[in-house]
Design a protein around this nucleic acid. Structure first.
Lengths: 225, 225
DNA sequence: ACCTGAACACCGTTCAAGT
DNA sequence: ACCTGAACACCGTTCAAGT
């Protein structure tokens, strides 16, 4: 017996490539959330020190961007329905992926990922707009706007982190606080239309956001001022 | 001489109230960015330990939310122009405040602030929509959408943190990377309309986002499915 | 009752030194 | 050349103990 195996049965040594780092990060994120997928934690999982990761990724933000693009590889391509239905399916897919894991959408907003999968998605969305007869310039900015909204909406509705405080206080307390604040503040219109403001399911809201934006994008020419 | 004064000439002792904590946090943020406005840093500025702050604020997120609402007190009310012009001025003001300090918009997206100043802003925006003859239900969701876009847009275009890497690499490298990625990826439409995709000033884009959304909001009824 | 020192359990990133 | 131990300079939050 030359030496006892460390921990469990590890085959020789992990390769430690960029892809392996990304996959490990995704694994941790799926199990414990993006908040736990830190450099130090990923390094530990890879049986090395955090410094080693910097050979393959520039920093934490770049690693998270790579994770996002990797996950974006899972967006499906809807073949049925008209261009608007297919565009809705595409953007909803994008949003669902970002909303599934806390922090992912927040990261996407900050680091502006531009990996191959996002570009492919952008290209498909542009294609659907153009198929719908929308001017390419409007289509380009329209896709930007749609993805911005999808990302922001995902950031808002992302499930809370694993170790989150007061899960029960979530919805009721928020409504109470809102209702109380509305009454306390000088917000007569909010008070009057409180049902409209707070009403609707997240799903219904998202669909309406999409439809409203599609209508506006198609109808609003890009000015040259 | 009973005892030597600590550091510089401090008058007796700071009051250490919630408002004083918020003001101190804003001061640090203005000078060094939100990233530096940590519990520990604020406590140090207040000549106490971080634990003391928890008597007045629940946690870092709540403190940052309070800071945002405080800053939102500075939104001006435009009196000239039609309802769309005034709404644009209002939402642009909101966006400008969030974009001025890095991290602020990012925080706003996560913590969903609902302080009195935000509620007042929401109420004013609703009022302008209703003045424009927009259905209240559409107005309510419309304001939500507009603020979501403004916040997300601010998060994207926020000035980089004080201690930021490669400022020169910013715009050119981003364009190069984008252009290269477009060529490398299978993104023919992106490649064809690259000028439209990357074109326009942030200001011009924001105005177009606003106009497109206004048009869509006014034209899209909230369905009851 | 109100406040806080000290501790707990973490971070990202760098760099000199090793193989 | 490639890799990394150890250090640097931080974090948020809690809680037992003090006044």
């Amino acid at each position: 017996m030359p030496e006892p195996r460390s921990r469990r049965d590890r085959p020789a040594k992990p390769p430690l490539s960029r892809q392996w780092i990304i996959d490990t990060t995704i694994g941790i994120m799926r199990r414990e959330g993006l908040g736990k997928a830190t450099m130090r934690r990923v390094a530990k999982e890879l049986d090395t020190g955090p410094a080693s990761l910097y050979v393959y990724v520039r920093n934490t933000a770049e690693l998270h961007a790579a994770v996002i693009d990797e996950l974006l590889g899972a967006v499906t391509v809807q073949e049925q329905g008209d261009w608007q239905d297919r565009l809705l399916a595409l953007v909803t897919d994008y949003r669902t992926i970002l909303a599934a894991h806390p922090g992912l959408a927040r990261s996407a907003l900050v680091i502006r990922p531009s990996g191959p999968h996002l570009l492919a998605l952008f290209d498909r969305a542009m294609g659907l707009f153009i198929e719908g007869g929308v001017d390419p310039a409007q289509a380009a900015w329209g896709v930007d706007l749609l993805l911005l909204t999808a990302t922001a909406s995902a950031a808002e509705h992302a499930e809370p982190e694993d170790g989150d405080v007061d899960a029960d206080t979530d919805a009721p307390a928020k409504c109470d606080a809102m209702a109380e604040a509305v009454r306390a503040a000088e917000a007569p219109l909010l008070a009057e239309h409180v049902d409209a403001v707070l009403g609707g399911t997240p799903q219904g809201r998202w669909t309406w956001y999409f439809r409203a934006q599609i209508a506006g994008i198609a109808a609003t020419p890009t000015s040259n001022d």
